[in-house]
């Protein structure tokens, strides 16, 4: 679905199905350097099982125009304005990595708009170290290689895949290539500079779920567990063999957990 917001074209995937009156909204927010393509194993699946899916391309990512936003606060406000445009007064929000930080900020900015929140492969603070941060500005391709390499678990590096014939490595790299130059650096800086996560997490009142990968090299499990401890009304799941890219690496497990959480 394409529409204009603040003078720029916005793309959100509805999972191939038009939104239906009265159905609950499910907002899927991608991580740094990614796009709605991260959720290709979730968006159609939930769109055809009773949800109004909104898998966003953040500004300056993939099919959405404009410049990439440079702070989590701006990104959270933007997703809320997308919800306004689509008539979604409330939604369950699901964020992966940077998307998880955006969820923390959305829940802080507009707690009444959040039905439930799901944190996938993320933490309350996601500091980004050198050399990744400096490479993102100076040598973007190297930064993409590093993120793809660290972003995948051992099975994905062995090219195991639930989608026949697909390569997590290839899809990861080429998905990042779909974004205009500068998106990776903007996203990583937004991650690095966002410090309100722990406070926001502690004040979330809605039900939350965390799904983390036991072999996550980008946001190691120990940081995720700290977030899970902070969230007052949380259910925690750890997928022991998954790397960081849980939506692609472990779609069946993630979808089953999501479905159960949404129904509860």
């Amino acid at each position: 679905m394409k529409f204009e917001l603040n003078g720029h074209e916005v793309y959100v995937s509805t999972g191939g199905r038009d939104h239906q009156q009265g159905q609950p909204f499910l907002v899927l927010i991608h991580g740094a350097g990614a796009s709605h393509l991260l959720w290709s194993q979730q968006s159609r699946s939930f769109a055809y099982t009773g949800y109004n899916v909104v898998a966003v391309d953040l500004p300056g990512h993939n099919l959405s125009g404009g410049e990439p936003l440079t702070s989590v606060e701006e990104q959270a406000a933007w997703v809320l304005s997308v919800m306004d445009h689509l008539g979604a007064s409330k939604a369950t929000i699901v964020g992966h990595s940077l998307g998880g930080l955006i969820c923390l900020q959305m829940a802080h900015q507009a707690p009444d708009r959040i039905e439930k929140a799901v944190f996938v492969a993320t933490a309350a603070r996601v500091p980004v170290g050198d050399p990744l941060l400096s490479n993102a500005s100076d040598q973007e391709q190297l930064a993409k290689d590093m993120m793809t390499s660290w972003g995948l678990g051992p099975d994905a590096h062995h090219f195991d895949n639930t989608v026949p014939g697909f390569s997590h490595v290839g899809v990861g790299l080429r998905t990042m290539d779909r974004n205009p130059e500068g998106a990776v650096a903007a996203d990583l800086n937004a991650c690095n500079n966002f410090t309100s996560g722990p406070e926001n997490a502690a004040n979330i009142t809605c039900p939350t779920m965390c799904v983390f990968g036991g072999k996550d090299k980008m946001t190691p499990l120990k940081f995720g567990l700290k977030l899970a401890e902070l969230l007052p009304n949380n259910t925690l799941y750890v997928l022991p063999d998954s790397g960081h890219t849980i939506p692609g690496e472990r779609p069946h497990e993630l979808n089953a957990l999501l479905r159960e959480f949404l129904k509860a």
């Binding site: 194993q41 699946s45 090219f159 895949n161 639930t162 026949p164 014939g165 697909f166 290839g170 069946h252």
Partner: peptide, 24 residues
């Protein structure tokens, strides 16, 4: 909506290993 095998004309687990190896 999701990955998997439904009929070998379309895909097959052994064939998928070959596909993923060549893609890699």
């Amino acid at each position: 909506e999701e990955g998997g095998h439904l009929y070998t004309r379309i895909s097959n687990p052994t064939v998928a290993v070959l596909e993923q190896r060549v893609a890699a």
